[in-house]
Measured scan of single mutants.
Amino acid sequence: MAAAAAAGAGPEMVRGQVFDVGPRYTNLSYIGEGAYGMVCSAYDNVNKVRVAIKKISPFEHQTYCQRTLREIKILLRFRHENIIGINDIIRAPTIEQMKDVYIVQDLMETDLYKLLKTQHLSNDHICYFLYQILRGLKYIHSANVLHRDLKPSNLLLNTTCDLKICDFGLARVADPDHDHTGFLTEYVATRWYRAPEIMLNSKGYTKSIDIWSVGCILAEMLSNRPIFPGKHYLDQLNHILGILGSPSQEDLNCIINLKARNYLLSLPHKNKVPWNRLFPNADSKALDLLDKMLTFNPHKRIEVEQALAHPYLEQYYDPSDEPIAEAPFKFDMELDDLPKEKLKELIFEETARFQPGYRS
């Protein structure tokens, strides 16, 4: 834990890192770190609560700039109880001085990944967590956004079992017609939660990839272990087919990539493993919904509104309290091709509203 900075004593240090967030945020305490930044909790002297502050230093890398800009653009436009918001952003007053960006968010005690390492969940908890994931996802999908990296560590939890989806750095506007060349190379989302079509096709992607990830998360809540822990690309596919069985001819016809289709045709026939054999203690309604989410063919996979209306979630289902976005989200430009200098300018502009004396 960093010592509390005395008023006016300059930035606090946390594990050798400068955290320049005073005077409003003090009493910093280390939480963890990701690929390009550290997260601390801090005391907000204005709202009198502890908050989470993520320090991001992305400006050396085009990919990190892209992810940072995506996350900020999306989260500043989203407003939903099951999606983490941005409360404040701290950065230098000029673009030349801006080396880091500090993002202030609600402090959540833990995440689903940490929880599943230590606790076996009751059916009631599984049901409530799944409902909140789908409630947040309904809003995301209504904005025409794909999260693309749903996994237990991106689901934040607090002691009252509130759940918030975080990390929109890989999110995209849904565009089933656009052929994202190089899709697989830039697709760094965790393999275990990846839909089979991501490994088999490169053309376009749809909201059904997020539903697949939610199915993987439900299976993990039922058993405290990942359902498809593939060691590499082909191993991942083999794990999936080992449980779902061989795809039907109709399902194979959806695979545009001939090499991928021929690979699947070359494999020995596998039978589907019954879900109640894998999860003998699970609620039968939970397994019915799991089956509809972990469907090989993305066109037959359940959609988020149908999933919310499934009998497993009937005690929570309330369409009048499951809000959607006001308007579909649009990125003005494809960020993939922009140089990091341009992305830095866009991050600077996007964060201006939090600067003292800002006038829109």
Rank of each mutant, 00 (worst) to 15 (best):
S320V: 10
R15W: 01
F168M: 07
R67A: 14
L156E: 02
N224W: 08
L252R: 07
L335C: 14
L150N: 07
I165P: 04
D337T: 11
D332I: 14
G10L: 04
P11K: 04
I83F: 00
N276G: 09
Y193C: 03
S57T: 03
N262M: 12
N276D: 03
C254F: 01
Q132V: 07
H269L: 01
W192L: 00
Y312C: 07
Y205W: 03
H120D: 11
A327D: 02
E305S: 14
D337Q: 11
I89Y: 10
N253A: 12
Y36T: 12
L264P: 01
R172A: 02
D179A: 00
I95L: 05
L252H: 10
N158R: 06
L184W: 03
R301P: 03
L163W: 08
L343V: 14
D106R: 13
V39D: 05
E326K: 02
T295K: 09
S142H: 14
L184G: 01
I243W: 11
R225V: 11
Q315K: 02
M108D: 02
Y233A: 03
L267F: 13
K330L: 13
Y64P: 10
H141E: 10
F329I: 00
M13S: 06
Q119L: 02
C166T: 03
P176S: 02
T159E: 04
R225T: 14
F329S: 03
F183G: 04
F329V: 07
N87Q: 14
E33I: 15
A2V: 15
Q97M: 13
P274Y: 12
F183R: 08
D149W: 04
C216L: 03
K73G: 04
L234Q: 01
A282E: 13
T118M: 10
K330T: 12
I86F: 00
R91S: 00
K344F: 09
W212H: 01
Q119G: 08
N271Q: 08
F331G: 14
G245P: 02
V18I: 04
A282I: 15
I240F: 00
R135A: 11
V173L: 01
N201F: 09
K99V: 12
F331D: 09
S208P: 03
Q306R: 05
L150F: 10
K285G: 05
Q97Y: 11
D88P: 09
E197G: 02
A3L: 08
D167C: 07
E71N: 10
Y102V: 06
I243Q: 10
F296T: 05
I103P: 10
Y131C: 08
I53M: 02
L267C: 09
H299N: 00
N238D: 15
P280F: 07
A325T: 02
I198W: 03
C161F: 01
K207C: 07
D235Q: 03
V18C: 14
V51T: 15
S320T: 03
D235M: 05
D283L: 13
D336L: 12
A286F: 14
A92W: 15
G245H: 03
I83M: 09
D336E: 01
D288R: 10
D336R: 05
S284K: 11
F59C: 08
Q17V: 13
I209W: 02
H239P: 02
L121Y: 06
E334P: 11
Y317L: 10
L308A: 13
L346Q: 01
I209N: 01
Y139K: 06
R77T: 12
D20M: 11
F19K: 02
D149L: 02
W212R: 00
R301M: 06
E305I: 14
R24P: 11
N253P: 10
A5D: 08
L155R: 07
H180S: 05
I324E: 13
G215E: 00
N158C: 08
N158E: 05
V46S: 12
N158W: 03
Y113M: 09
N257Q: 06
A327S: 05
P196Y: 03
P280Y: 08
K73E: 02
D336V: 01
L155D: 05
G169C: 00
E109Y: 11
K151R: 01
R24T: 15
S57G: 14
G37C: 04
Q105D: 09
R172D: 04
S223G: 07
V273P: 15
Q306M: 14
G22K: 10
K330Q: 08
D124R: 09
A325V: 09
H80V: 12
A260E: 07
R50L: 09
M38S: 07
H232W: 07
L278Q: 00
M221G: 06
N144Q: 03
C40W: 13
T68Y: 10
H310N: 00
E71Q: 06
K330A: 13
Q62A: 09
I302D: 03
F354Y: 02
N281A: 13
A174W: 12
R148Y: 02
K48Q: 06
S284V: 11
G182N: 07
F78W: 11
L163Y: 06
P226G: 04
Q66H: 00
K54Q: 04
N257R: 07
A42F: 15
D111I: 10
Q236E: 06
P229W: 05
D111K: 06
E314P: 15
L76V: 15
E60L: 09
T94E: 09
A5F: 15
F331S: 09
E71A: 10
C40T: 15
Y193L: 01
A189N: 04
S122W: 09
G10Q: 08
I126T: 10
Y139Q: 06
D332A: 06
D288P: 05
A6P: 12
M98A: 13
A286W: 12
Y317V: 15
C216W: 05
L75W: 11
L156V: 11
L335E: 13
T185D: 02
Y131F: 01
P323V: 15
I74G: 03
V21E: 00
P23T: 03
I72Q: 04
D210W: 03
L241I: 07
D175T: 09
E303C: 10
F354V: 05
D111G: 07
L290D: 02
L156I: 13
D20W: 15
